[in-house]
């Protein structure tokens, strides 16, 4: 009955009651998600931080009495011979992937803005790579890039290119996972940029066309500048998502051969789970470095979104 009375008061426009009663109802509805976030987000992250600050062995991991070791794990990670290559590969993988995803996605988005027969259907079909489970895409690409029997090497052999050991040669492993990742990321860029293009008013194009602008000029002088806010958000979000790619690389190359395609994400996994003797401390330390990088771009993204 109190809620009833409250509503009556509220409809009469008394805001004081709303302030007094509103929060309790709101918190009742918010309680599950807040408890959830604390228990299943904050606590695992805290555990991860704790892992990175202690010296663990398999025994102490189970018993939970590992000695505090400060930043030793971080120091060990920085001194590790894998650190610089992993950092470099993470940067190359992320930047090259999103550069191509964005460029191809944008070109396709512009292409699809003209409504033609089948355009909606074809645009929907473009989503398929993004929706497939990563293990499906990764294993398909693994077989396509197989050195001896893969379709890619066969196609290249027709134009006279010698066999490339895509996944097994240190020179090509990183390129291979980047190619597969670009393929997976194009749909996301296409959809967001396409929806961004929908907001550009048609009259602007008509005006530009009347002024005699060619298609190319129209794109660079009109479309691209108007699309800048959406582009910034797409790129930043792409950055955050690509930094954390793990499945694809692990399934295709396991970060190998000999670290040739190891990124911070795969290295972190390998340290904690990939060896017979797990190194949870250093693994968690690498993971936390990755969080810092993701948060840096993530906060930048949120800031951008608020200011547009």
């Amino acid at each position: 009955m109190t809620t009833h009375a409250e509503t009556l008061v509220r409809t009469r426009g008394t805001t004081r009651v709303r302030r007094a009663r509103g929060p309790w109802a709101a918190w009742a509805f918010l309680a599950p998600v807040i408890i959830y976030l604390v228990a299943f987000y904050a606590y695992p992250l805290y555990r991860n931080l704790d892992l990175s600050l202690r010296h663990y062995t398999v025994r102490s991991f189970v018993q939970g009495d590992a000695p505090f070791s400060g930043l030793d794990n971080y120091r060990a990670v920085f001194d590790d011979a894998t650190f610089l290559p992993a950092l470099l590969h993470t940067m190359v993988f992320t930047l090259v992937s999103i550069a191509f995803q964005f460029a191809i996605g944008l070109a396709l988005a512009v292409f699809f803005t003209a409504h033609f027969k089948l355009s909606a259907t074809l645009r929907a079909l473009f989503l398929v790579p993004w929706l497939l489970p990563l293990i499906v895409s990764a294993s398909t690409w693994s077989w396509m890039l197989n050195s001896d029997s893969g379709i890619v090497n066969y196609a290249l052999s027709i134009v006279g290119v010698e066999q490339i050991n895509w996944l097994t040669s240190p020179d090509w492993a990183l390129t291979s996972v980047i190619i597969a990742n670009i393929w997976i990321g194009i749909p996301f860029n296409l959809v967001i940029l396409y929806s961004g293009l929908q907001t550009v008013p048609g009259e602007i194009y008509e005006a530009a066309a009347l002024d005699g602008a060619t298609g190319w000029q129209r794109f660079w002088r009109v479309t691209f500048p108007l699309l800048r806010p959406v582009s910034a958000i797409t790129l930043l979000l792409g950055l955050v998502y690509t930094l954390k790619v793990f499945d694809l690389i692990w399934i295709m190359t396991k970060g190998g051969p000999t670290d040739a395609s190891t990124t911070l994400a795969t290295w972190s996994y390998r340290l904690s789970f990939g060896n017979l003797l797990p190194e949870f401390g250093p693994g968690a330390a690498v993971g936390n470095l990755l969080i810092l990088m993701a948060l840096f771009f993530g906060l930048f993204y949120i800031w951008r979104q608020r200011h547009d």
């Binding site: 695992p44 949870f280 993530g298």
Partner: peptide, 13 residues
């Protein structure tokens, strides 16, 4: 934005 692999490590522990 938190990478899944890091959540996984915390959950594992």
């Amino acid at each position: 934005m938190i990478p899944g692999i890091i959540m996984a490590m915390g959950f594992y522990a």
